[in-house]
Design a protein around this nucleic acid. Structure first.
Lengths: 237, 237
DNA sequence: CAGTGGTCTAGACCACGTG
DNA sequence: ACGTGGTCTAGACCACTGA
């Protein structure tokens, strides 16, 4: 029933910010002032403020005070997983090709490779209710002793494929989302005879040194896939 | 030069997690144990753990201990703004229409309206280097006394349009991204004669009570727009 | 029962910014 | 000099889990 004091402080200040009683740029009361109003010790007040800081509501400036931030109104959280971002989930996959290949010029450029570095190439088809809905292509830099397990290649997401030899906490990922028309290969694999737009998601993986370690491109039929994202300020209250 | 002790603890534990010395599910040493190893007070240890918790690395369970999380490997951060997500930014806009209208059945459904609620409809064109690159359509629920300023309508992003009468901290937003072919109206406005796929971004705004207050749909030429997102675990070290 | 994390206190010293 | 936030201590009491 009773919220701890520091959370009451958090909620009070959030309410004032959301109701625009405190606007971006405004100073919030000093820590000592908040100790007075809530009749608590400074560490308790600071614990509350630390939460507001970590959630992006306020910023503290030593020697000056704490101030309401401009909200990050362009920031969204997107959950993406090539196997489950469709209107109906993927219920079947087909391995078209697994190969060790030498990279093309485009790939050397994109992954910042030396030209004789070997690449694992994986091509897959994704099905939903018996329909071909996406064509998926991965390029993974080959490391000696890399355990390549059939099951992971066939059913795994891109992070799954590398998680066995690196902590997922150490991997940085980037997505690029675009709309394209299918080229010949994609049209063939997806059996597209009419003009169907594709939602193309390119996924690039980096290690802790920010070196690219893999590239994945998934071509979703536009009529079977939608991505969604939501703003980050949905936290409580 | 010298990091504060609590941040040293944070970095130490992050390193152990990233190097897989601590794996998801593993317990990290108890708070008292950490006090011992770092020769500091418990509050200092707890300050460090609080950061690891807020960044999603660990979870604490009262009476049991603190444990390494499964990483949220599907989570990405996306920055979206209908005016600046293109390969070249938008340098010109054109207002096609501003109107107060009654909602269509589709809109009533999507915005969860009563049928006689008035709607502000705004249609705009976006240009980049003289080319038409996007067609933008907004539906805003009309509130009495809502200040509608020409400048905001012509040049503003969707959040801009509502920021004058609500704190942006109080607004929840949802995006839906898809690939479509242009319908007649969009093709006309964008002067599309060939088959060009569109990247369609639908943006819905909600107030604190989770009631929809606006809907925006932007139709970007697929060859002029890419969205990008990156994983959230890029935080330091 | 002993060990764990959760909350909270009443001090301390520091570096910073403004007058 | 004074008020601000930043770091840190050495305690306290609580509720929870597990043997």
């Amino acid at each position: 029933m009773e919220l701890p004091i520091y959370l009451q402080i958090v909620e009070d200040i959030k309410d004032k910010i959301k109701s625009a009683a405190l606007k971006p740029g405004d100073a919030i009361p000093s820590e000592n002032a908040l100790c007075e109003t809530y009749k608590v010790s400074r560490m308790t007040v600071r614990k509350g403020l630390a939460i507001l800081i970590s959630e992006g509501y306020i910023t503290s400036i030593p020697g000056k005070g704490s101030f309401v931030n401009e909200p990050d109104s362009e920031k969204y959280t997107l959950y993406y997983n090539e196997m489950s971002n469709l209107i109906n989930s993927i219920d079947q996959t087909k391995l078209i090709e697994v190969n060790i290949v030498l990279p093309t010029a485009k790939l050397i450029n994109s992954l910042n490779l030396s030209s004789n570095r070997k690449i694992i190439l994986v091509k897959r088809l994704f099905y939903s209710n018996g329909e071909k809905v996406a064509f998926d292509q991965k390029y993974l830099i080959y490391y000696k002793g890399m355990p390549v397990v059939e099951k992971e290649i066939k059913y795994g997401t891109f992070p799954d494929m590398v998680s066995k030899y690196t902590s997922l906490f150490a991997i940085k990922k980037e997505l690029t989302i675009s709309a394209e028309l299918p080229d010949e290969e994609v049209a063939k694999h997806l059996s597209l005879y009419n003009t169907i737009p594709l939602l193309v998601v390119e996924q690039k993986l980096f290690n802790t040194q920010n070196k690219p370690i893999g590239l994945g491109i998934t071509y979703f039929r536009g009529d079977y896939c939608k991505l969604s994202a939501s703003s980050s300020f949905s936290n409580s209250g």
